[in-house]
């Protein structure tokens, strides 16, 4: 979707402010929200692509002005409500309760050894999005390609600043979960992923581009079309 989260090239939103020191978590509530991603993922709230799309659906003014981990709260609520896992009226009622009584305790509960084991296992193992697929790659390193102009209204990783731009395939990574289906609840449908190199001049115009620079952006196979095949000799070609 053409949302405000798609920020590359946006001007006028101020300088990058880098504090001298910063804790990993700035508040107690950030510490509570961070683990919710992995634990709600385990509980079937969303996949990673859907999680991102839930954030993309946040009101743009809130998106730009709210602290980072509040974005995670919104996407957890979005899927919790959608899947019937969270009663929003009850959530509002409890919010009012804790706003009036910030020190009120959380519900009594038992430890869960399985949940702890999940944390210990998932942190070092992760959950790769790489998938085997029988699909042949349509492109190879060295091909000159153009990103299509398609502007889906659902989740996609087609950032606006690379749409229509021409670049060179520099890396081929194999097949991965396709965000344009997975992020919209339509299944994994793996596609080949490539890194494409775009010059600054191609993206921003010669007049406005910084000199001697380029951007490397990952695309899925359906995002691009061939402009010119690699000029490198292919295997088996006769010299």
């Amino acid at each position: 979707m053409n949302g405000v989260f798609d920020l590359a090239g946006t001007d006028g939103i101020g300088p990058v402010v880098v504090p001298e020191h910063e804790p990993v978590f700035r508040t107690e509530w950030e510490k509570a929200v961070f683990p919710m991603f992995a634990m709600c993922f385990r509980a079937g709230f969303f996949g990673v692509d859907q999680f991102r799309h839930g954030i993309e659906l946040i009101d743009p003014a809130v998106y730009l002005k709210s602290p980072y981990y509040e974005h995670w709260v919104h996407t957890i609520e979005h899927f919790g409500e959608k899947l019937g896992k969270l009663d929003m009226a009850e959530l509002d009622r409890r919010t009012a309760h804790y706003l009036a009584n910030p020190e009120a305790p959380l519900p009594q509960h038992q430890d869960d050894p399985e949940l702890l084991a999940f944390v210990e296992a998932v942190v070092p193992a992760g959950a790769t999005a790489k998938r085997e697929s029988g699909k042949a790659a349509r492109f190879k390193v060295g091909d000159i390609v153009r990103v299509d102009r398609s502007a889906p209204k659902g989740h996609t990783r087609r950032a606006r600043y690379i749409r229509g731009a021409v670049g060179e395939v520099v890396l081929a990574h194999g097949t991965f979960i396709y965000p344009d289906t997975a992020g919209n609840g339509l299944g994994e449908h793996p596609e080949h992923v490539y890194t494409v190199r775009f010059t600054n001049e191609e993206l921003w115009g010669a007049e406005h581009a910084e000199p001697n620079g380029s951007v490397y952006f990952d695309v899925w196979d359906p995002y691009i079309e061939l402009v010119a095949p690699s000029s490198a000799p292919t295997e088996g070609a006769v010299a």
Partner: peptide, 28 residues
């Protein structure tokens, strides 16, 4: 307001068995 919202959400996820304070503390 965010802190209250998060605590409310946390309380519901705890009751559903989705998370525990022990697992939260470990991940942090």
């Amino acid at each position: 307001e965010i802190a209250a919202r998060v605590k409310a959400l946390e309380s519901m996820l705890i009751e559903q068995g989705v998370m525990t304070t022990q697992a939260i503390d470990r991940m942090v």
